[in-house]
Amino acid sequence: MDARGGTSSRWPITDDLGALRGQVRDFAVEAGLDGFRLQDLVLAVNEAAANVLDHAHGEGHVLAWSDDGHVTVEVCDMVGRLVPAHAEAGDPGAGKLRGRGLWLMGQLCDEVRITQNPRGSSVRLRQSLAEDPAPR
């Protein structure tokens, strides 16, 4: 338990995204998430962490906490190139080979919010624990 009344965890971002996916999955299962919504959150975190590997020198960390009926995962980098407007990324379509990570996060999670601070940028991904509030 932490000050927010829930549980929280922190992991570094490394080349081994499979390990990070396992850590996020375990945390979210413990918090009560399951099914497609669990898999969607894990994929969204994977996308955000892959962006850190590709665009932020691979330096960053992941914070996860659960409270108030939500699991929230924040993927933080030390470069700060991401700005809040990036959360509104559109569908690149099948003609474009790359650059669909941020758009995909929006398809997968209830909430995607990007913040910038003097130390870097962070992508906050939020999934409700309620039974599929918005079927996709």
């Binding site: 995204l17 996916r21 994929l43 994977n46 996308e47 892959a50 099948a94 474009k96 080979l97 790359r98 669909r100 990570g101 995909l104």
Partner: peptide, 16 residues
């Protein structure tokens, strides 16, 4: 068991 956007990019490149 799993495919992310990097994998999707490879499939799209093969398609092209």
């Amino acid at each position: 068991a799993f495919c992310d956007s990097t994998g999707i990019s490879v499939f799209l490149g093969a398609r092209r």
